[in-house]
Design a binder for these strands. Structure first.
Lengths: 188, 188
DNA sequence: TGCGCTTTTTACCATTTGGTAAATGATCCC
DNA sequence: GGGATCATTTACCAAATGGTAAAAAGCGCA
């Protein structure tokens, strides 16, 4: 749990008792590679924090193709938060792409923290908003060519090429597998 | 101010007195076409709500090219909110691309609403998070070809081609002006 | 109205990327 | 270990997009 606490304390202060309370509300969840954390068409039921592993956000476009929209790895929240809050159904899947260890909070427990810890809402919203902000900044830039997008991807996620299949990275970058394979070859 | 109040009440309830308080903290701001609402490298000082007009988010990439990252129009918040909250400097410009009428809240006034209206923080955070969420969903999809991106842009922003220059739309969609012009021609 | 300026369109060709298919490489399971 | 399955690379050609340049259209202003 230390990772989670360290993460939270970036956004505000909690005393020992409050930290204990947060810990008591979280549960360990192990996901196997390919397991879903949440699914398109369903209402997200939990907020997660990734202790170990990589999760991707993905959906199927109107031609049935599977598109990877984002990658989320250690020390980050994972949740379709707007739909979690509003009890509305999600439009994407959140899927483990390696074996993962998460700390998860049920909606009930997550809300109880708001009621019992003064200042929790402030911390919570800063966390959520920073996550959303970073997601929008770390993603591939549409006006760059595919090679540049891949090079920037490597800077943002240096370890990923070893951890996740090429096909996921290709769809994330908006190119075909073949093109990405060619780009890799030309870089060397 | 009715537009603003209608917008806010989507996210929670306020009584008449509270509505008056919100109104009293907002100020009208008229922007001329090409004026900046906030600038890269500076700390955002205000939250805005667009009553009339179109604003774009843009920045200069490492080759000095100007990239339009998003469009924001009527009945929407406009603010680099994470940097506004954290008093950190923004990485992009928010620029009026038509004459605009905004209602703006200084940081001081915005924070006073939190202190004086119970439940304001809840409303505020829902507004901000929905804005961030929508921005991430309305944008061009990198895995689609340029024609599809333009067609979806037209669905999301049907009136824009008449209101904003082609060059902004082109950089938003990640294509050159020439390509976008050709795409327009082929669609007809 | 006519001039100068900016925006948009068009044309040409070079380059990048996609689609299809096959070959190679890696992994899993029996 | 061997065979089946999946992931990645390579090749070939077609299609889409970019770069440069010039023409046409639109717009503000005297």
């Amino acid at each position: 749990m230390e990772e989670l606490i360290g993460y939270i304390l970036q956004f505000g202060n909690l005393n020992k008792q409050q930290i204990e309370l947060v810990i008591s509300k979280g549960q360990i969840l192990q996901l196997k590679k390919e397991d879903y954390f949440s699914e398109a068409g369903k209402i997200p039921k939990e907020v997660g924090f990734i202790v170990e592993g990589v999760v991707r956000g993905c959906y199927y476009n109107n031609t049935g193709e599977e598109i990877t929209r984002c990658f989320i790895s250690e020390n980050s929240l994972v949740c379709d938060y707007v739909n979690f809050e509003a009890d509305t159904s999600s439009s994407e899947y959140l899927q483990a792409i390696t074996d993962c260890c998460l700390i998860v909070f049920s909606k009930k427990n997550w809300e109880e923290l708001s009621h019992t810890i003064v200042g929790w809402d402030n911390i919570k919203n800063k966390m959520v908003q920073l996550c959303m902000y970073q997601k929008s900044r770390k993603g591939p830039v549409i006006s760059q060519d595919a090679t540049t997008r891949y090079l920037e991807f490597l800077e943002n996620y240096p370890l990923f090429p070893n951890r996740v299949p090429l096909s996921y990275i290709a769809s994330y970058l908006g190119v075909t597998q073949q093109s990405l394979s060619r780009i890799r070859k030309n870089i060397r």
